[in-house]
Simulated scan of single mutants.
Amino acid sequence: MILRTDPFRELDRWLDTAMRQVPAASPVPMDLYRQGDRFVARIDLPGVRPESIDVDVEDRTLTIRAERATMADEDVQWLSRERPVGTFARQLTLGQHVDVEGVDAAYSDGVLTLTLPLAEEARPRKIAVAREESHRTIEQGGHRTIEQEPSGASS
């Protein structure tokens, strides 16, 4: 009896096992989008006490820190422990177009929402185009008269 061995069989079995394991997710998932004249960041922080959340801006770097406490029960025997605990941090580098003085933060239902307004100089604005009228001044006998020149004429 001849046994044929497949050199890739063990590799396939190993990859199959590895792919069934759940990959570790980022402990601080975030959505970031622009809405009108502001950017909005929504950061999932379930199970975090609001008083443990710290948001600060320094040198155009926005830092979010939060802590999810671990269970203190000593008689617990863990069967599965997938929810991360401890202190989490996330940093965003803010561009020159963000008004760092106007950043606002709100926490509700396990989601931290940051509102980052555009700086006034970065906001789109309409520039009015003024129509220049051609005028000529006529002086006669000490009196000054301003007349509009006909369209297309110049002095």
Rank of each mutant, 00 (worst) to 15 (best):
K126G: 10
L116T: 01
E133T: 10
I146D: 02
A106R: 00
I53H: 01
G110M: 09
A128Y: 06
A24M: 15
P124Y: 07
P46R: 04
Q91P: 13
L116Y: 01
T5V: 14
L116W: 01
Y33V: 07
R123F: 06
A66K: 04
R131N: 05
D16E: 12
D59L: 12
S26D: 15
L3F: 10
Q77T: 14
D73G: 11
R144N: 04
T61G: 14
A130M: 03
L79N: 15
V57I: 03
P27Q: 15
R9L: 13
R20Q: 05
V103N: 02
H97T: 07
R123Q: 08
A119L: 07
I138E: 10
W78R: 14
L45G: 04
D99S: 02
A24I: 13
E82A: 15
W14Q: 12
V103F: 02
R60M: 10
M1Q: 11
M1N: 08
I43R: 00
P23D: 04
R38Q: 06
D109P: 03
L11F: 08
E10N: 14
G152K: 05
V28Y: 10
Q140M: 14
P84R: 09
I2T: 12
E149I: 09
V57C: 01
G47D: 06
T70V: 12
V103A: 02
R83L: 15
E58K: 15
I64R: 06
F88N: 12
D75A: 13
D73L: 10
R4W: 10
P27K: 14
G142Q: 08
P117C: 04
I146Y: 02
S52H: 05
Y33D: 08
V40C: 05
T113R: 00
M30K: 05
T145D: 01
A105H: 00
T17Y: 07
P50G: 09
E147T: 09
D75N: 15
V103D: 01
M30G: 05
E149T: 12
V76H: 14
P84V: 07
D99F: 00
P150S: 13
A119G: 05
M19C: 13
R136Q: 12
V22T: 03
R125K: 10
T137A: 01
M1S: 10
V111T: 05
V103K: 02
V22C: 02
I138R: 11
